[in-house]
Amino acid sequence: MHLEVSGLHKQFATPQETIQALKDVNLHVEQGEFVCVVGASGSGKSTLLRLIAGLEMPTTGWIEVDGERVIGPGADRGMVFQDYTLYPWMTVQKNVEFGLKLQGIGKQERKEQASYYLGMVGLVEFAQSLPKQLSGGMKQRVAIARALTSQPKILLMDEPFGALDVQTKENMQQFMLELWERTGTSILMITHDVREAVFLSQRIYVMTARPGTVRAEIAVNLDKSRTRQTRELPQFKTYQDEVTAQLLVST
């Protein structure tokens, strides 16, 4: 897998004005990488992810996955939204199966695959529950399992833990790292939380606001397997300060 974003511009025309949401954004994600994009709110992070997902079209510039132009949404780019967006009428199991169902895969195989990923996110005993019976963190785990079941080349996540309380959030970050190591999926995650970005990623892109551009690219050379203690390391603090400094420069 190789994701390449090149010379990306995005403008939104509103009745009052034209908003330049993204200006000349260039970035890439390689196979098996965990990359985060941090930026203040309004810096065009969601727009960037939606463009990569194919839910919006660039004004100029292009996006390629494995050398193929992105011209619309597809199952090769899985997406996890901040507000979970589960299908409320389907059980957890059906939610997770749904991507495979859309691809016309048979009932039995769907079931097995979904159970595998439900096991991976630790929700087997909730397979027959409805989404409304789950907590926020559990819902987001279902959404992640649902995205992974289609075996996307890259997983796109837009502030997936933004709505969770601190405790749940840290558990989810730990869980996300384990999941990433087990599946080897490439992940591009958006966040405004610097600690989260440093804890999770191998590389960080820092974005400026209005218009959104990439201000800096920072490689995070921490051990690949990270735990609660990682957050206490002096290097962790250094990275955190470095990213924060870049964020502040931009305003």
């Binding site: 194919g54 949404p73 997406m79 967006t85 299908y87 289609s150």
Partner: peptide, 29 residues
């Protein structure tokens, strides 16, 4: 019908027709 639900369906590989029949329709039952 929440736009995000439709978009989630597209990113799972759903066609417009599938989205109409399997997401929009059950949502409004």
């Amino acid at each position: 019908v929440p736009q995000h639900l439709l978009e989630a369906t597209y990113t799972l590989g759903g066609s417009r027709r599938q989205t109409l029949m399997q997401v929009i329709t059950p949502y409004v039952v």
